[in-house]
Computed example of a mutant assay.
Amino acid sequence: MRWVFVRDVSGTHRDEYFFTTAPELTPSAVIGHYCGRWNIETTFQEARSALGLETTRGWCKNTVLRAGPCLFGLYTVVALLFHALPAAKRTGAGAWPGKATVTFSDALCAVRRWLWAEAVLPQAGDGTALQKLPDPIRELLLTTLAPAA
């Protein structure tokens, strides 16, 4: 077993301890492997908060085994649709001080907004109902319908 202790001499972060069962790894490699997990951990956290991962309501073994892959598939579809949207359509993101990047909730909101505007609402009436609304009302409607719950 290899144990790596990291101390922040500036005092801005807490001390960290890393363990591995691969003693041939250098301390830098151990820390590098940990840092490489960040994207995976973020994916799981966002899938839990935005899509309900690990909150299956089913009791059947097959239901539980299907839920995870289906939710990760949904996560992937949302990410792909968001990146396929033109930059002008990537709207509806919540902003706060210090926020530097788009979160999954922002992407989900933009995809929902696009789906409401392009697929769901145009089917109402003769297909021009959304276009007949004044711009402020249309924006209010889409802003209300799109955010992730």
Results as ranks from 00 to 15, higher is better:
residue 29 A to R: 15
residue 113 R to N: 09
residue 83 H to Y: 13
residue 123 Q to W: 00
residue 47 A to Q: 04
residue 2 R to V: 15
residue 15 D to E: 11
residue 27 P to Q: 09
residue 98 G to A: 04
residue 1 M to H: 15
residue 149 A to Q: 06
residue 31 I to T: 13
residue 14 R to F: 08
residue 67 A to V: 13
residue 40 I to S: 08
residue 108 L to R: 09
residue 5 F to N: 12
residue 111 V to Y: 05
residue 136 P to S: 05
residue 145 L to W: 07
residue 81 L to Y: 08
residue 67 A to K: 10
residue 53 L to W: 06
residue 144 T to V: 07
residue 89 K to T: 01
residue 19 F to N: 14
residue 92 G to C: 08
residue 48 R to V: 14
residue 89 K to S: 13
residue 144 T to I: 02
residue 102 V to G: 00
residue 6 V to R: 11
residue 73 G to R: 14
residue 103 T to M: 04
residue 7 R to V: 08
residue 122 P to W: 01
residue 65 L to K: 12
residue 18 F to Y: 15
residue 130 L to K: 00
residue 82 F to Q: 02
residue 46 E to I: 00
residue 137 I to S: 11
residue 61 K to V: 06
residue 66 R to P: 03
residue 2 R to F: 09
residue 28 S to P: 01
residue 112 R to K: 14
residue 129 A to R: 11
residue 147 P to F: 05
residue 135 D to Y: 02
residue 2 R to E: 10
residue 134 P to F: 02
residue 116 W to N: 07
residue 86 P to N: 06
residue 51 L to T: 03
residue 70 C to R: 12
residue 12 T to V: 10
residue 112 R to V: 03
residue 57 R to Y: 04
residue 142 L to I: 03
residue 83 H to W: 14
residue 23 P to V: 13
residue 145 L to R: 08
residue 101 T to H: 09
residue 73 G to L: 15
residue 146 A to R: 06
residue 22 A to E: 15
residue 97 P to H: 05
residue 56 T to H: 03
residue 56 T to V: 07
residue 47 A to W: 03
residue 35 C to Q: 14
residue 95 A to R: 14
residue 69 P to Y: 11
residue 148 A to M: 08
residue 122 P to M: 01
residue 91 T to Q: 11
residue 128 T to V: 00
residue 115 L to H: 13
residue 115 L to F: 10
residue 98 G to F: 05
residue 96 W to A: 01
residue 90 R to V: 10
residue 102 V to H: 02
